[in-house]
């Protein structure tokens, strides 16, 4: 279990008076891939938000990228977040920015020079099939195209941990296959990946260990 990128030990999460997650313990090693499965309301999105450092656990110990999140000072969290990529279910693209600028955001926050950003973002958008749509704003893109921009933004920084909430929801079969190939490649290169999905077909096609939740509790976590 040592060297785990994600480690939860009896983690609970309360949102208001509601106990959203209870007694979650699991560990995912570097380069590990996990499906995050469970019915709606099981707590998948809440667990992803915890792993994305949008929330801190109410109980238990959460360790990400070797850092105890509960004990880490607030000022240390932005550096950790820059090493985590997230694909949101609702994309969360900034509507006033072009596809290029949306994907460039993490690199600009990391203070990368514009020359490198031009090259990396152009290449990434070409890879997700949006070479001709680089200057389009989200409102001009279809749902699938927006999802691909969101994926490009999440992986542009070569994150150590990649989280995705229903990343294939708006993609056609070919694009979904391409995404899974990309995730597989990232995983081989050492990125730890957690993908929440309801898409049984894609889970069946790409067998991998799964973390299953039900009513905020861990049902099982494959090794």
């Amino acid at each position: 279990m040592s060297g785990a990128v994600v480690r939860l030990d009896r983690v609970a999460l309360d949102v208001g008076a509601q106990k959203v997650l209870r007694g979650i313990s699991l560990a995912i090693p570097r380069g590990g891939f996990r499906w995050l499965l469970g019915p709606s309301g099981a707590g998948k999105t809440s667990l992803l938000r915890l792993l994305h450092l949008e929330l801190r656990p109410s109980e238990g110990r959460l360790e990400l990228l070797g850092r105890d999140v509960g004990a880490a000072p607030r000022a240390a969290l932005p550096q950790l977040r820059r090493r985590i990529g997230m694909v949101f279910q609702d994309f969360r693209l900034l509507p006033h920015l072009s596809a290029f600028d949306n994907v460039a955001l993490p690199l600009r926050l990391a203070g990368r020079p514009e020359g490198q950003i031009q090259a990396d973002v152009g290449e990434m958008l070409a890879w997700v099939g949006l070479r001709g749509r680089i200057h389009c704003h989200p409102a001009e893109l279809s749902g699938g195209e927006q999802q691909r921009v969101a994926i490009a933004r999440a992986v542009i920084n070569r994150p150590d941990l990649l989280l995705a909430d229903e990343p294939t929801g708006n993609l056609d079969d070919t694009q979904a296959q391409r995404l899974m190939l990309l995730l597989g490649e990232l995983s081989r290169l050492g990125t730890t990946i957690v993908v929440a999905t309801h898409n049984d077909t894609i889970v069946a096609r790409h067998p991998a260990p799964a973390v299953r939740l039900a009513e905020g509790r861990l049902v099982n976590a494959d090794a």
Partner: peptide
């Protein structure tokens, strides 16, 4: 030199 430049400070990423 252009390639090494950073994003200008007045860029309006937050809209």
């Amino acid at each position: 030199r252009r390639a090494r430049r950073l994003r200008p400070a007045w860029s309006d990423d937050l809209g």
